[in-house]
Amino acid sequence: MRVRSMMQTQIITATPEMSLAEVQRLMRDNHIRHIPVVSGTGYQRLVGMITDRDIHEAAPSPATTLTRGEIAYQMNTIAVKTCMTRAVVDIGPEAEMVQAARLLVQRRIGCLPVVDHGTLVGVVTEMDCLRAFLETARDTEREEHSARRASQRRPDLYADVPGIHHSHLGERLSPPLAERMSPQGTDTPHSTFTN
């Protein structure tokens, strides 16, 4: 499954010149924690990422002696470019979702921007990876089921095939998950799965 088919394309973006107060508002209104920072007119060139944590770290501590007005002034004057992450890990739209999952887990990031020829085209989060994983598993289960039924009708045709689970991506499922998904095993004549 490709990144292009699972990424979110309705993305909220910020510019490097935006204030932290504005970005904070965008995050709160849209219930998001990561915003890609783009620049350029006509196309969206990715220049950084800003997260709720970046803002939290830049903001005065709750125990500050600053007055409410002073805090607001500070948040309104600090620009995104001063506290965004510039060295951003990104991925291309034609990459596989498992690669996106690997980057998210290994780099411990919550949101991966999708960049095509220098232009931001989407974002993927761990939830999108989970959706891809569940969809692939469901497709595989269906195909496995129909393959199993076919092999029961014509066992002679499938005699040489050691495991008849092929996903639609042409990849073979390894035994552990295949077993978990078909708890009765492939030898069971009747399956509880129905299409």
């Binding site: 498992v98 999952a101 690997r102 998210l104 887990v105 761990e126 990876c129 989970l130 994983f133 499922l173 390894s174 552990p176 998950l177």
Partner: peptide, 8 residues
Amino acid sequence: LSRASIAQ
């Protein structure tokens, strides 16, 4: 779950 899908 992400780790499981990668391992898989």
